[in-house]
Design a protein around this nucleic acid. Structure first.
Lengths: 243, 243
DNA sequence: ATGCGGTTGAGGTCCGACCACATGCTCGGT
DNA sequence: ACCGAGCATGTGGTCGGACCTCAACCGCAT
């Protein structure tokens, strides 16, 4: 009485290679900073062609686990690294574009993640991060600021707070989720009726948020950022979205 | 007075291909279900070799945006799909193994995400999902259950609730985060002093959680799941972790 | 000692060939 | 007319070799 019939997946070679390297990483035999043997050596050792190996390496590269550099120095070759942010960002961006996730889903995720970020940041954010955030807010207060620059600084503001919360994982997730809706937000801002007023209003919230974080008022900051995000997304769905 | 000097990034060919396809996806020209031209046609059109194209396709495949099947039917060839879960799972698993994220980070992320999941599930989870969850809980109550099976069912329980919350994004994230610590949890459970008692205690919490969700008590369910997860991770850090 | 060019080894790219597989069609037998 | 065996075709998957670019290194000439 088998519970379920699962399709027996024949493995393509590069998947085998991938699994092999993956296992080494999970077993702790490969750690950040380690170097892999040159492709031309590793391929015959694994018993596959260089193409197959290269495809596996490429996958690891897009996951943010590997970087490769030509040349000869100590930095050359394939090295294990830890750079999840880009990979996660691209992943969510594409899937959001494909409609795997609705705008509502992203909104809720942002609220949940950023509430947590701001609450944690209020507890233990380094002052230098807050000073940097201050500069970003100041930058956004610039009169005559373009939509694009504002969007840029806004993203960096939210991501910075997430990073300063001390939690690398939620920081990465926050960043990726924020990135995934960036083009949408950009379009919405461009369609705003009174752009300077909108910018001023949004930035007033940023300033208040920063103040709350500085004085350690975690819950208040969390509530405000939820309101901030929800308000923002509210203008999104009412934006240039009537098919 | 240039604002910043940015390193001019020479792009590797497959990155260009990737960007090109990515743009089509984001622009909405490529949608889920669409098929790409055969590799042998597409490569010369893009002006690159098949190898370079294949590397780009491989990347898209690991992101969960593409699947490829040989053969000739209507299902053959490269098709755009939406399957973010595996990709995200592998990504977090590897990065957790590499130490990009501490156990504490994962704990906090789980708490935040699953609180949200359970709260939302209490509001609008389909009854069939809850019935399925009921079965999982019953399965975990089985006397003499092995650690491995329990871990399996536990994972499915949490992921199921996340999915039934109606938010695809937080569901994916929850699932991926839970998966990333699965081997760790497995080891911790195996090291438990009184395994049957531990299993009973954990499952009593599951049952209560399910009841709370059924009766729509969102906040209570959220609080309990936070306690549930924190307690669990508490045994983790005190577990077989003394080097 | 210094500066410059060749050498070397790394990844990046390309090409051409073959393999495995599933579909779809043709052809022959019934 | 029907039906099954078997070949043709088109797809991704794999392989091996060749060449390119790049960066460090070595050694010669200044």
């Amino acid at each position: 009485m088998p519970v379920e019939w699962q399709p027996v997946q024949q493995s393509r070679t590069h998947e085998l290679v991938l699994r092999s390297i993956e296992e080494r990483v999970i077993a702790g035999e490969l750690r950040a900073g380690d170097r892999l043997p040159p492709e031309r050596e590793l391929a015959p050792v694994l018993g596959v062609s260089r193409s197959a190996l290269r495809e596996a390496l490429r996958v690891l590269e897009t996951i943010g686990v590997l970087v490769a550099q030509p040349g000869r120095g100590p930095d050359a070759g394939a090295r294990i690294v830890r750079n999840p942010d880009d990979a996660l960002g691209r992943l969510l961006r594409l899937h959001f574009a494909l409609g795997s996730y609705s705008l509502h889903d992203v909104l809720e995720a942002r609220v949940v993640l950023e509430r947590s970020s701001f609450e944690a940041a209020a507890c233990h954010a380094p002052v230098e991060d807050l000073d940097e955030a201050e500069e970003l807010v100041a930058g956004m207060a610039e009169p005559g600021i373009t939509v694009s620059t504002f969007n840029d600084l806004d993203t960096r503001f939210h991501v910075l707070i997430a990073r300063s919360s001390g939690n690398a994982l939620t920081s990465t997730l926050t960043s990726a989720v924020r990135e995934s809706v960036r083009p949408l937000i950009l379009r919405a801002l461009e369609a705003a009726e009174d752009w300077p007023a909108t910018a001023r209003a949004l930035n007033a919230e940023h300033r208040t948020l920063l103040t709350l974080v500085r004085e350690g008022s975690g819950p208040e900051a969390a509530d405000l950022v939820e309101w901030h995000i929800r308000g923002f997304h509210g203008t999104l769905v009412k934006g240039p979205d009537a098919p």
